[in-house]
Simulated scan of single mutants.
Amino acid sequence: MKAISPHFHRHDFCCPCGCGFADVSIELVALLEAVFEYFQQPVLIRRGCSCTQHNKACGDEYASQHLLGTAADITVEKTSPDDVANYLEATYPQKYGIGRSESWTHIDMRLTVARWRE
């Protein structure tokens, strides 16, 4: 598949169910490029876009940003999820949704500020 940025392809964001949904936000891709540049390590998309069925299968029963193509759960090679979340929170203190988990970091382009730990 064609690259949508220097380090990401549309297929990186495809819904895992195989439906083909991969309409990812350009703002999200730009933010993930900034994460790559900061850490100088590959950014792996664990979950990007989700169709309604896959979103429910993941346990999201609310209007998830993954449904809009404006969210990603990521890992950064050789970097702890807390270090990634700390960078995002310091860089975007008044923007976005940033969630922490033991094994990944969530980032989304919501219009309000949100922070949480799973």
Rank of each mutant, 00 (worst) to 15 (best):
A3L: 12
P6V: 04
H7Y: 08
H7N: 11
H9Q: 14
R10F: 07
C15R: 00
C19R: 00
A22L: 00
D23C: 06
D23Q: 11
S25M: 00
I26M: 08
L28P: 01
A30D: 14
E33I: 02
E33D: 12
V35T: 04
F36M: 00
E37V: 08
Y38C: 03
Y38Q: 09
Y38P: 01
F39G: 03
Q40W: 01
I45C: 03
R47S: 14
C51E: 01
C51R: 01
C51P: 03
T52Y: 09
N55L: 04
K56Y: 13
A57P: 06
G59L: 06
G59H: 08
Q65I: 00
H66G: 02
L67T: 06
G69M: 01
A71M: 07
I74Q: 02
E77D: 14
E77W: 10
K78H: 15
P81K: 00
P81S: 03
D83I: 02
D83L: 09
D83A: 15
D83C: 10
V84N: 04
Y87S: 07
L88G: 06
T91D: 03
P93N: 06
P93M: 04
P93A: 06
Q94M: 10
Q94A: 13
G97I: 03
G97E: 11
G97H: 07
I98P: 04
G99H: 05
G99D: 09
S103Q: 13
S103R: 10
W104A: 06
W104I: 04
W104V: 08
I107M: 06
D108S: 12
D108L: 04
V113W: 05
A114T: 15
A114I: 12
R117I: 15
E118V: 14
E118W: 12
